[in-house]
Amino acid sequence: MGYMVDTAFIVKFTPLYIEAMGLVLELCFFGVLFSLIIGLFCAIVRYYRIPVLRSAAGVYIELSRNTPLVIQLFFLYFGLPRVGITFDSFTCAVTGLSFLGGSYMAEAFRGGLEAIGRGQIESGLSIGLSRSQLVRYVALPQALAVAAPALGANVIFLLKETSVVSIVALADLMSLAKDLIGLYYKTNEALLMLVAGYLILLLPLSGLFRFAERRLRYAGFGN
């Protein structure tokens, strides 16, 4: 197309991209961490049909799964401060990601827990295990193995979802690309680096999860 890529431009702004990638990873790390905690909590509360908490978890999961992250973030970042609840940008983004991811993780854990047969629970009971011992020694290890692929997919999902955090004024990859396009009109370079940035983050992770999933399947428990 008769258009040379401006390598000097790319070299010049690479450090900024690396910085933005660091931010994305950091957001994703905390988002995944809290999502896992929320998800595990919701899944266990629902699995054991604990009254009140179980319904609360159900409402949360519906709200979280049926609204987009963009809207959740707008509400958290612009809406809540107006009634006296303030967040800084980073906390807001992590809160949004965790609110979104928690329900996805909960569904993944739930799938794992539901895959455990009644007989497993009964045989645990019959040797005198308590409820919490049942979860710890019998249910969770098996549920985790079943849920692992879905959990991995959710990590990828959350990493991709971070692409909208620029709306809460975070200098992530998207906002950097947008700024460079606006300031220098170096559209191709900026977009190229944007795609490269996401691929560098996502491809190894996705490959790792696929590899792990295959290993897990071969080592599968099977009765």
């Binding site: 007989g119 497993q120 045989s123 020694y137």
Partner: peptide, 20 residues
């Protein structure tokens, strides 16, 4: 029942060993 079940051993048709 936790205490009682320690005194009553049970074996099931489908083994139900813990696979992990």
């Amino acid at each position: 029942w936790r205490l009682i079940r320690q005194k009553i051993g049970m074996v099931f048709q489908s083994y139900e060993l813990f696979p992990h």
